[in-house]
Amino acid sequence: MTLGSMDNANGLEVEVVIFERDRQHWDRLSEDVASFETQPDWKPDS
Rank of each mutant, 00 (worst) to 15 (best):
M1L: 07
T2I: 04
T2L: 14
T2E: 15
L3Y: 12
L3C: 12
G4Y: 05
G4F: 07
G4V: 04
G4P: 00
S5H: 08
S5N: 14
M6T: 01
M6P: 01
M6H: 00
M6S: 08
D7W: 06
N8D: 15
A9F: 06
A9R: 02
N10V: 03
N10G: 02
G11D: 12
G11T: 09
G11W: 04
G11H: 08
L12H: 00
L12Q: 01
E13L: 05
E13T: 06
E13Q: 08
V14T: 02
V14N: 05
E15I: 06
E15F: 02
E15L: 08
V16E: 01
V17R: 14
V17F: 04
I18D: 09
I18Y: 07
I18E: 11
F19D: 13
F19C: 06
F19E: 08
F19T: 03
F19G: 04
R21V: 00
R21N: 14
R21W: 05
D22S: 09
D22G: 06
D22I: 00
D22P: 00
D22A: 06
D22C: 03
R23D: 07
R23W: 03
R23S: 04
R23K: 15
R23A: 10
R23I: 02
Q24R: 12
Q24M: 10
H25I: 03
W26D: 14
W26G: 07
D27A: 13
D27Y: 05
D27S: 10
D27C: 06
D27R: 04
R28T: 11
R28V: 09
R28P: 00
R28M: 05
R28Q: 15
L29R: 04
L29G: 02
L29A: 06
L29N: 06
L29I: 08
S30D: 15
S30C: 03
S30W: 00
E31G: 08
D32W: 05
V33M: 12
V33C: 10
V33H: 13
V33T: 12
A34S: 13
A34N: 14
A34W: 09
A34Y: 10
S35K: 13
S35G: 07
S35E: 10
S35T: 03
F36V: 10
F36N: 05
E37V: 04
E37R: 13
E37I: 02
E37M: 10
E37D: 11
T38V: 01
T38Q: 14
T38M: 07
Q39S: 11
Q39L: 15
P40H: 10
P40R: 11
D41L: 02
D41Q: 11
K43V: 09
K43H: 08
P44K: 04
P44A: 02
P44H: 04
D45C: 01
D45T: 08
S46H: 11
S46T: 13
S46Y: 07
S46A: 09
